[in-house]
């Protein structure tokens, strides 16, 4: 005998699709914000206090193993130093705070996505709140990065804009779905 009929015709199509897309993007974004959190933390805590990086250590065996040339190995150190020099004061702290909030909201969007698929009574309202929260995090990251100089802008801006557009689409989808349901019930 089988319990809980899952062919739930009471779930509107928009909620099923929006829910799954929110879950997929939520899983991906949780990982991205989590990586950003670690990135800022690692770069900040491992920079020498003097700001001067030591010379690269590039033994031949390690180069083979990594599949890189001596020049590339030396560039890895120069690159980290360049990024550190291009980073304004306060940037790592702001990005870590936003990445932490983003990680939590992105994970929440996975849960909300599941609720949308099951079309629970609170799901569409919660979706509006979480998607709006994620869009606000994107906007705050945009404001932080846009004033951080050309190097950081080149690294971050396109991906922040892409996520902002995706979150805007999810938010508008949830709002449109709520309006459709309200009209259907009325």
């Amino acid at each position: 005998m089988v319990s809980n009929d899952l062919n739930n015709s009471s779930t509107p199509n928009w909620a099923s699709i929006l829910g799954v897309v929110a879950i997929m993007l939520g899983v991906f974004l949780t990982a991205m914000h989590g990586t950003e959190l670690m990135k800022q933390s690692v770069l900040t805590s491992n920079m020498p206090a003097s700001g001067e990086m030591p010379a690269a250590d590039c033994p031949l065996g390690e180069l083979d193993e990594e599949g890189i040339t001596l020049e590339q190995c030396e560039f890895l150190v120069d690159y980290v130093q360049g990024v550190a020099q291009a980073t304004p004061e306060g940037f790592p702290g702001t990005m870590m705070t936003l990445a932490l909030i983003g990680t939590l909201l992105a994970f929440a969007s996975v849960i909300i996505g599941g609720a949308l698929v099951n079309y629970t009574s609170w799901s569409s309202m919660a979706a509006v709140v979480v998607f709006a929260g994620l869009a606000i995090v994107d906007l705050l990251q945009f404001a932080t990065v846009v004033n951080a100089g050309p190097i950081l802008r080149g690294m971050y801006l396109w991906s922040i804009l892409l996520w902002f557009i995706l979150h805007l689409m999810l938010l508008v989808g949830a709002l449109a779905g709520r309006h459709t349901e309200a009209a259907r019930i009325a």
Binding site: V27, F28, T30, A31, M32, G34, T35, M38, K39, V42, N46, P48, M53, P54, A56, D57, C58, E62, E66, C73, L76, V77, Y79, V80, F107, V110
Partner: peptide
């Protein structure tokens, strides 16, 4: 799912960090 995606994304970044030494 979240852990696997985190491992993918973070590993692409961490492989671009300087090779380890006593100071790095």
């Amino acid at each position: 799912a979240v852990s696997i995606f985190f491992l993918f994304i973070s590993s692409w970044w961490m492989m671009g960090l300087p090779l380890p030494s006593e100071e790095l």
